[in-house]
Simulated scan of single mutants.
Amino acid sequence: MVDIAATISALTGSLEVIKAIRDTNHAYDKNELKAQMADLYGNLADVKMALSDAHMELKERDQKIKELTEHAELQGSLITINGYKYDDKDGRPVGLPYCPQCEVAENKLYRLTLLSDTRSRCTNCKNGFPVAADGNVHPEKTNT
């Protein structure tokens, strides 16, 4: 996290050095002037780094907000049937459902891929599900 107070302090210090140099009547000797300029460069470098960090944090925050907004919009356009979430078109499921395990574990929606008429699999977690594009859960067949 960017330390805004430290950034303001470094900037204030830089401005004070500039003001001291400007207000002098050229009474500084070369060594004093070089020392003041070194302080100024150091303070300005600190400000630049802090602003760069702030810029990166803001970009990351904006990306997270975008992802959360898209996720919320997508959640609002889904229909749940038998515990599986599908895209909703006029109250009917469209396409294959999304993986319920990945939704819970990662809070992300991965569409299942069709393995057979009654089985689907998640490409992310590799789990199989007894569900297909028709919105019906197909019970597992047992050999008895």
Results as ranks from 00 to 15, higher is better:
115 L>Y: 01
8 I>Q: 07
99 C>Q: 09
80 T>S: 15
128 G>A: 07
80 T>R: 06
139 P>S: 03
139 P>M: 02
39 D>H: 03
88 D>K: 07
34 K>S: 12
126 K>Q: 08
5 A>C: 00
69 T>G: 11
53 D>I: 00
83 G>F: 07
30 K>C: 01
108 K>W: 04
23 D>E: 14
102 C>D: 13
11 L>Q: 08
4 I>P: 03
126 K>S: 10
134 D>F: 00
25 N>T: 06
55 H>T: 05
130 P>D: 09
84 Y>V: 06
7 T>V: 05
19 K>N: 12
18 I>N: 02
18 I>G: 00
37 M>S: 00
18 I>Y: 00
102 C>H: 05
20 A>N: 14
2 V>K: 10
80 T>E: 14
108 K>P: 08
55 H>C: 05
17 V>L: 14
38 A>V: 03
54 A>V: 06
51 L>K: 12
141 K>T: 13
17 V>D: 14
59 K>S: 12
66 K>I: 02
106 E>I: 00
70 E>Y: 07
118 T>Q: 13
122 C>H: 01
54 A>D: 06
39 D>A: 05
130 P>C: 09
86 Y>N: 09
84 Y>L: 07
112 L>I: 07
56 M>P: 03
144 T>H: 07
51 L>V: 08
69 T>H: 13
8 I>E: 02
115 L>T: 03
48 K>R: 15
3 D>T: 04
43 N>K: 14
107 N>D: 15
125 C>M: 04
55 H>S: 10
121 R>A: 04
107 N>K: 14
113 T>P: 00
86 Y>A: 06
2 V>A: 14
81 I>E: 11
26 H>V: 02
27 A>V: 04
41 Y>A: 03
127 N>F: 05
37 M>F: 02
109 L>D: 05
61 R>V: 03
134 D>E: 09
115 L>P: 01
92 R>S: 14
48 K>C: 09
45 A>D: 12
73 E>F: 08
136 N>A: 13
42 G>I: 01
56 M>R: 14
13 G>I: 02
53 D>R: 12
10 A>F: 04
137 V>N: 09
75 Q>R: 06
96 L>E: 13
24 T>G: 14
32 E>D: 11
136 N>V: 12
69 T>W: 13
129 F>W: 12
35 A>Y: 06
61 R>F: 10
29 D>S: 00
131 V>P: 15
5 A>W: 01
112 L>G: 10
136 N>C: 08
36 Q>D: 13
9 S>E: 13
22 R>F: 04
73 E>Q: 14
64 K>Y: 10
108 K>A: 09
78 L>E: 11
59 K>W: 02
46 D>C: 05
8 I>M: 08
10 A>D: 15
74 L>H: 12
43 N>M: 10
51 L>E: 13
2 V>T: 10
51 L>R: 15
